[in-house]
Design a protein around this nucleic acid. Structure first.
Length: 543
DNA sequence: GCCGTTTTCGGCCCGACTGTTTTCAGTCG
């Protein structure tokens, strides 16, 4: 069973435990483990049984959960899940997806009315039978019906690129509101997750300003979900949920920290605060009832003895220990990048357009995929100061064999992995990396999802043979790229971010790859795009 | 279920909003 499926199975267990009324801490433990396993770059089966790097060493995973994760990885089954399903119908999990319905009400609905499915729930709501339950009135009943009708549209996560396109115009309009001193997007958007479920906009201003009303009347807004003094939630016409919070200037840093998350990071930070007898909330850092700080985000970290942590790292994946020990990475930045890998069906104008953007940044290069050396030399005169390399994407066979390529400078090996299991892919990639015939190994991809393999094992061979590991920056190819980058970095190998752009507009996509590299703790030295043209040429020549 | 610069047992983040209430439970992030 792959990591993602193990994660969603553990989430199912958490859902059922929650409906049963199990300890919230036990539920939290399952959710934490689900998150941790889903984020692992390599399959659970490749982790060592004991000692460093083993399951038990992962934060929030102890003996019990490690055993359950192994049970799932090896057998695809989990005895506990069967047991839970025998007591509580699995279909109740879907009730939790409806807004306003949580575990308590789901349980009450099941036990009080004998309802197990969304269909039965809809029927009961239409007949007005739900309000027989304590704590449920006509409004909640209507909300549930509305939620059932809209359930296809909402709850879906969209790509970061799509979210940016929707949210930036709204923020620009809100920014014009009088009395706004600062406005920022927080949440997973600020952490640069490759997909976002909703968007949190944070405003520093007097609570009395009418910015919530402004969001409600924004042309992109479809429906109002909540409308309080400090919090306004709306659903856009696209189905994306936007939450707007207004906080006073003196709380802006604390609020930015809180609403940026992640939830797991916040819990860890607040736990550190508890040990120091501090209370940390979105309003600031407090001792007793005395307010200590909160205007700047740095204040929150400083109050628990930590350096400021870049948002991309705030996932409770070791950033807190690193911040305490002064070992946070100096993350690679846009200004560090000097080159890219672009598609070759560009005409001279296309190459000139992309090259001029890079040329402004000093010694720069482009690898043009699908071009021969001859093409590259011919195009060079349009590229100005930017050095052009000819590149080719060649297939890697199931046995690790490399296809033939034209006369090029850079060869990217791409495996066609549809029918291969983890072990076969790993083996094929290792063989390909050792062949001496490729410079970059593309990330295996299959049916809209990254293919799992033993990233550490492959990256180790790549490091020894000077092969770069590709990170495809196109939106839609970024799933799990952060964990992949982290695993590559930890092995000491280097990634190559490839925009695979076919136009100047698409060349801007490289920043989405950069986002994921940063989420993977990569510094400039871990990313081959930071090399100068000369350094890249030397690297290619060494092979 | 996890975990330990107060701990191997007793804790485990914090607040806003809503709808139902008669003082609060449930949900959400």
């Amino acid at each position: 069973m792959d990591n993602e499926t193990i994660g969603s199975t553990l989430d199912q267990v958490a859902d059922l435990l929650e409906i049963e009324g199990a300890s919230v801490f036990r539920v939290r433990a399952y959710r934490g483990a689900a998150r941790t396993v889903s984020a692992l770059a390599s399959p659970v089966s490749t982790l060592p049984e004991k000692g460093p790097g083993s399951l038990e060493e992962l934060p929030g995973i102890g003996k019990d959960l490690a055993g359950k994760i192994r049970e799932l990885a090896e057998t695809g089954e989990l005895a506990l899940l069967h047991e839970l399903k025998s007591r509580t119908p699995e279909s109740l999990i879907h009730l939790l997806e409806l807004p306003g319905l949580g575990p308590k009400r789901a349980k009450a609905i099941h036990e009080g009315l004998g309802i197990d499915t969304i269909e039965e729930l809809e029927k009961a709501a239409r007949e007005g039978r739900l309000r027989a339950l304590k704590g449920v009135g006509p409004k909640l009943e209507a909300q549930i019906l509305e939620g059932i009708a809209a359930r296809a549209a909402r709850g879906k996560r969209i790509s970061l690129a799509e979210a940016e396109a929707q949210v930036e115009p709204i923020v620009a309009r809100l920014r014009e509101t009088e009395g706004v001193s600062q406005i920022e997007v927080a949440g997973s958007y600020r952490r640069r997750r490759d997909n976002v479920g909703d968007v949190d906009i944070l405003v520093a201003a007097d609570a009395s300003i009418a910015i919530g009303k402004k969001l409600i009347s924004d042309p992109a807004t479809d429906k109002v979900l909540a409308d309080g003094d400090t919090k306004t939630s709306v659903l856009l016409k696209s189905g994306l949920q936007v939450d707007l919070r207004v906080v006073p200037v003196e709380s802006f840093g604390a609020a930015m920290h809180y609403f940026t998350g992640s939830k797991a990071h916040n819990i860890a930070i607040r736990t550190l605060g508890v040990r120091r007898k501090l209370k940390i909330s979105e309003w600031g850092v407090f001792q007793e009832d005395k307010r200590l700080s909160g205007e700047r985000e740095e204040d929150v970290f400083a109050s628990v003895g930590l350096a400021w942590v870049p948002p991309e790292l705030r996932e409770d994946r070791g950033e807190i220990d690193a911040a305490r020990e002064g070992k946070l990475p100096k993350l690679v930045e846009r200004a560090d990048l000097r080159g890219d890998f672009v598609e070759g069906n560009l005409d001279a104008d296309g190459i000139a357009a992309i090259a001029s953007a890079w040329g402004a940044k000093g010694a720069a290069w482009l690898v043009v995929l699908g071009a021969t050396r001859h093409d590259a030399l011919r195009a060079q005169k349009h590229a100005g100061k930017v050095t052009l390399f000819a590149g080719a994407v060649v297939p890697v066979g199931a046995d690790g064999s490399i296809g033939t390529s034209e006369d090029v400078d850079v060869v990217i090996g791409e495996i066609h992995a549809e029918n291969l299991d983890e072990k076969s892919i790993t083996q094929a990639l290792v063989t390909a990396a050792k062949s001496g015939r490729i410079h970059v190994l593309a990330r295996p991809w299959n049916g809209g999802k990254p293919k799992q393999f033993d990233v550490e094992a492959v990256a180790k061979v790549c490091r020894e043979h000077g092969v770069l590991l590709g990170l495809d920056a196109r939106p839609g190819f970024l799933a799990g790229a952060d964990g992949y980058a982290r695993a590559v970095k930890d092995t000491g190998a280097r990634i190559a971010i490839t925009s695979r752009a076919a136009s100047a507009d698409e060349a801007a996509h490289i920043r989405f790859g950069l986002d994921q590299a940063r989420r993977g703790w990569c510094e400039a030295k871990d990313v081959a795009n930071t090399l100068s043209a000369e350094e890249l040429e030397n690297l290619l020549a060494r092979r």
